[in-house]
Design a protein around this nucleic acid. Structure first.
Length: 425
DNA sequence: TCTGGGGTCCTAGGACCC
DNA sequence: TCTGGGGTCCTAGGACCC
């Protein structure tokens, strides 16, 4: 028995979720937009076949989409998150190991009986998921994560494999590796693929066979690991237990540019509240906070700025974090810059369970308890009545500020208000 | 007019120490 | 022309991922 690495993902996940809850768009062109309805982040296979590209700004394709009768949806992360949980739960029951890698993707492992293909096993799993969750998945299998990714790619690309491919059972993998373009290899991004192409490396096979020294010199262990994995040596293990999160961030693009410190402060307070709420929900504390902002990245005078402040006593308290973040906005703000995005990142995350409280933190125990209770009260009210019911000072955001989501679908799986009504006649 | 958001890992270089 | 050699820890920034 040998261990096979699995790579499983939901096909066109966001678009499939939308089709699943709305049968009227099944088998039709569907695209999903990023926050702010900015650009296209998912397409149904029908939309792809009609030539709709990924990652393109929505405004450029609006007319074409209408012409082709393609259904447009704003991203509905609450829905996708819920479907994802159900999917992962089912996968976990059917694999020996499982690592949840992203909202729509997991790595897993399973033992292979000598010389035996796992095609039928994959086929059964695929059917089970479709029956229970209503989402089509693809399954790639191989000796390593990089190879299983390639398998998954082939499973999608070549019709006759019908969503399942196992490169691990194939002795001479070279003809398959040759089909994989260099920037389709997992771990090879924009920069590395340019560097490789300049050296005549254009596909996975050529990368596998190139000089290891050359890779190591330029990209160190990171590059070397990818090459070893292509050769079939496992270097990137399955991580079953979710390691503790290292950072939490909240950032958004605005629906129109801002250029005053006052406005920047407003949004930052808003984002700090969202981030500190995430901390409290997960019983976490942070001890360092970064605030950043930038102008339009596509403009000629692109400007970005960021600053970080330490927090001496690890905290999840809104008031303390807001005070720190306002020091930071003062540092990063520059007049006459048309800012279109800002965000906060919390670092040095730790659990609040084993926190050693210093004897003298300058607050006093009564004051500290008071702040904690205040956060609890605000969290409770907002959970019950919607995220923006109560906020801090100037954090209440005017309507036109909000990122726009004009084409949002219902959340019938998590929100009772959205459950479909069935009338008996 | 309008181009996402949230993460991880690695490394180079500075600060500090003996 | 010369300026010690190493080790550790921290941080900013780059590159990548979905």
């Amino acid at each position: 028995m040998s261990k096979v690495i699995l790579q499983i993902d939901g096909n066109n996940f966001y678009a499939s979720c939308e089709q699943m809850i709305d049968p009227s768009i099944k088998g039709k062109g569907v695209i999903v937009l990023s926050n702010n309805d900015g650009c296209i982040i998912a397409r149904s296979s029908e939309a792809r076949k009609m030539g709709i590209p990924m990652g393109q700004p929505y405004f450029k394709l609006k007319d074409k989409l209408a012409q082709l009768n393609i259904n447009v949806r704003s991203s509905n992360y609450e829905l996708y998150g819920d479907i994802s949980n159900r999917l992962m739960h089912l996968l976990r029951k059917n694999c020996e190991e499982l690592e949840i890698y992203s909202i729509d993707e997991a790595f897993g492992s399973i033992s292979r009986p000598p010389q035996k293909s796992l095609y039928q096993w994959g086929k059964d799993l695929r059917a089970l998921v479709y029956q229970n969750i209503g989402i089509p998945i693809s399954i790639g299998m191989g000796e390593t994560k990089v190879l299983s990714k390639i398998s998954n790619h082939l499973a999608k690309k070549i019709q006759k494999y019908s969503g399942i491919f196992d490169i691990g059972i194939i002795q001479n993998k070279d003809p398959y590796l040759k089909q994989i373009h260099i920037n389709q290899v997992w771990g090879i991004g924009k920069r590395m693929s340019i560097w490789l192409k300049n050296r005549g490396i254009t596909n996975a096979l050529e990368l596998k066979n190139m000089s290891s020294n050359q890779i190591k010199e330029k990209y160190g262990v990171v590059g070397l690991r990818i090459q070893y994995e292509l050769k079939g040596t496992l270097c990137i293990p399955i991580k079953e237990t979710q390691l503790d999160r290292k950072e939490i961030s909240v950032s958004r693009s605005f629906s129109y540019p801002i250029d005053s410190l006052e406005e920047l402060n407003k949004v930052i307070i808003k984002y700090v509240l969202m981030a500190s709420n995430k901390l409290r929900k997960n019983n976490l504390l942070c001890s360092s906070i970064t605030v950043f902002t930038n102008t339009n990245i596509y403009s000629n005078d692109f400007f970005k700025s960021e600053a970080t402040e330490k927090i001496n006593i690890p905290t999840s308290n809104s008031k303390i974090m807001i005070e720190k973040s306002l020091l930071l906005t003062n540092k990063i703000f520059k007049p006459y810059k048309k800012l279109i995005k800002a965000g906060v990142i919390l670092h040095n995350i730790q659990s609040n369970k084993y926190i050693q409280k210093p004897l003298f933190n300058g607050l006093g125990i009564q004051k500290e308890l008071h702040l904690e209770r205040l956060d609890n009260v605000i969290d409770n009210i907002n959970t019950r009545n919607g995220i923006n019911t109560i906020g801090w000072g100037s954090s209440v955001i005017e309507e036109e500020w909000k990122t726009s989501k004009r084409k949002l679908s219902n959340i019938m799986t998590t929100n009772i208000e959205n459950i479909a009504t069935i009338y008996a006649i």
